[in-house]
Computed example of a mutant assay.
Amino acid sequence: MSEIEKAAQDAVEAARQSDQYALVLAAMQAAQAQQTCRHQAPAPVRQSGSAGKWVAAGVGGSVFLLAVAVSAVAVAVSAVALTVCLLVLRSVWQDIQREREERRG
């Protein structure tokens, strides 16, 4: 498995884990909210949508981390391409130099 494939797999796994953490946090907050409601006297409950905010934050964080991972892969691919290009140009230059020397003598 190449480094690029491994990096892509790691990025996908990180995104999955971020989604899972967001869901766990949302579930914990919902459980805390239920416990708080049980211990207090009934009162008009106004939901602020905090679970939705956590899920949105988790999804946004996952997208951000995935974008960073894809950017890192793009930089790595660019570095490999540049290296190959320079090696090919160096080889061509050496061939030209050899031909010049053979013509001279």
Rank of each mutant, 00 (worst) to 15 (best):
R103D: 09
R100G: 14
A56F: 04
R100A: 00
V59Y: 05
A69Q: 00
A76F: 03
Q35M: 15
E99I: 13
A7N: 12
A56R: 06
Q20Y: 14
A33D: 15
M1K: 03
M1R: 10
V68A: 02
E101K: 00
Q40K: 11
V75D: 06
R46E: 04
A57T: 04
L87N: 13
G49E: 01
C85H: 05
E102F: 03
V75S: 07
E3D: 12
V75I: 04
Q9T: 14
R46S: 04
R103S: 11
L65Q: 07
V68H: 01
V59L: 12
D19Q: 07
E13V: 15
E101Y: 00
L89H: 04
G61Y: 03
I4R: 01
A81C: 06
A30D: 14
G61A: 01
S50E: 14
I4P: 00
D95S: 14
S48Q: 05
Q32S: 08
V45P: 01
L25P: 01
A30M: 08
E5G: 09
W93C: 07
V45W: 09
L23D: 07
W54A: 14
S50A: 10
A67N: 03
G105M: 00
A56P: 00
E5N: 15
A41I: 05
G105D: 00
A14D: 15
W93A: 14
D19L: 14
Q9D: 12
S2H: 08
Q32K: 11
A15R: 07
W54F: 11
V88C: 10
R38P: 02
D10I: 12
R38Q: 13
R16E: 15
T83K: 10
C37K: 14
A43Q: 14
V63N: 05
D19I: 12
Q94C: 11
L65A: 08
S2R: 04
Q97G: 03
A8G: 13
S71Q: 06
Q47H: 15
V12P: 05
A57F: 10
R98Y: 01
V70S: 06
D95C: 09
R90P: 01
